[in-house]
């Protein structure tokens, strides 16, 4: 029969000597579910308040990944799709560091990205934009952060593309990022934009983030220090995941 004994875990599910629950998500720093300028969000936004629930093992734990799960080319979008030829467009090194809210580097984070090609076209059955597909570009990559929380991808800079929202809506060039911390409650999907793009301020999706400083966290910076001469420009995109409160021992609730 099922073993339902809690084992050596303390009753709360928090182990003494380990960090406590995640900091509460600052919902005002994220886009609201309902943002009418982004029309699809109108029918796809919950209207009841979210139910707050303190973290248990179900939220603090999550799937773990390692480089052993991945192939050696998985973070190289210049070469991970076609066996011959190179993608057209501006070659780029896209890199950064993942920190938590306590400013500690987070190793072992699975980062998965997807993006349009240099012409602004996705390799997807639902993308009907007239711009051409690139036979040498698939548009996805993934990697796991190293011991200092660092990651990098080689790719081409994506193009802007039009989309059905208002009469003439264009997405600024962007790379979609999916980020896995160590806990399921940290799960995050976002988009990285490129410094200097005038379409960012016209985009209702970027604009769904109310605070300009928060929006600015999504702008990758031109990083000449890490560019590869005669090869590619570097863009730096740092990521902050939810951090955890410091340990709170079971029998000493005032702290440690």
């Amino acid at each position: 029969m099922t073993d339902t004994r809690p084992g050596r875990l303390p009753a709360s599910g928090h182990r003494p000597g380990r960090p406590g629950p995640f900091f509460a998500r600052d919902r005002g720093h994220h886009p609201p579910a309902l943002w009418p300028d982004y029309k699809t969000s109108v029918a796809r936004s919950p209207r009841q308040p979210l139910l707050s629930f303190e973290n248990t093992l179900s939220e603090i734990t999550g799937p773990l990944f390692s480089l052993r799960d991945l192939g050696p080319q998985d973070n190289d979008l210049l070469s991970n799709f076609a066996t011959e030829g190179q993608p057209i467009g501006e070659r780029m090194l896209l890199h950064g560091q993942v920190l938590d809210q306590n400013a500690r580097p987070v190793p072992g984070v699975l980062i998965e990205i997807w993006q349009a090609n240099a012409a602004g076209r996705y390799r997807h059955v639902n993308d009907g934009y007239r711009a051409p597909l690139d036979p040498a570009f698939g548009g996805c990559g993934r990697t796991v952060t190293d011991s200092e929380g660092r990651y990098f991808f080689r790719s081409i800079k994506p193009g802007a593309y039009p989309w059905p929202n208002a009469t003439d809506s264009w997405r600024p060039a962007h790379v979609h990022f999916s980020i896995f911390g160590s806990g399921f409650a940290q799960r995050l999907i976002t988009q990285a934009y490129f410094e200097g793009d005038p379409l960012i301020d016209r985009c209702p999706i970027a604009g769904s983030i109310p605070d300009p400083a928060a929006r600015n966290m999504l702008v990758a910076r031109l990083d000449m220090e890490n560019s590869v001469p005669f090869d590619m420009l570097a863009w730096r995109f740092d990521i902050v995941l939810r951090g955890r409160r410091s340990t709170c021992f079971e029998n000493r609730p005032e702290g440690n």
């Binding site: 991970n80 998965e112 997807w114 996705y122 390799r123 698939g138 548009g139 979609h176 970027a206």
Partner: peptide
């Protein structure tokens, strides 16, 4: 917390390319 969390953005309509690439027809993984 010392830092603010990176804000979320929609996964968009082409999420399969990144997260379920075989569904999108990508066979590279």
């Amino acid at each position: 917390p010392v830092l603010k969390e990176t804000p979320s953005q929609t996964a968009g309509p082409y999420v399969h390319i990144g997260l379920r690439p075989s569904v999108a027809g990508f066979a590279g993984y």
